[in-house]
């Protein structure tokens, strides 16, 4: 029985962490602009590297 209580505590803690992460992400504005994030992800850092090499 005590195992179940332990598991309960563990599961609710994990769930709380996710809730906190969700609230943080909303507050952080991650959902404000849904259009640019998927585009931004596709850019590689190549141009940056090029620039460094030139310097």
């Amino acid at each position: 029985m005590s195992v179940i209580v332990l598991l309960l505590i563990a599961s609710i803690t994990v769930a709380c962490l996710f809730l906190a992460a969700f609230i943080w992400s909303v507050k952080n504005g991650q959902y404000d602009d849904e259009a640019s994030a998927p585009l931004r992800m596709l850019f590689d850092d190549k141009p940056l590297n090029k620039e460094e090499k030139q310097l």
Binding site: D33, A35, F43, P47
Partner: peptide, 26 residues
């Protein structure tokens, strides 16, 4: 997406621009 990329790389055009972040929807 090119616009997005270029506008977020403004610091390469002028080193005094510290950062630029685009909100594409707006």
């Amino acid at each position: 997406s090119s616009c997005l990329w270029l506008l977020e790389n403004l610091h390469q055009l002028n080193e005094n621009i510290i950062s630029s972040k685009v909100n594409f929807t707006r």
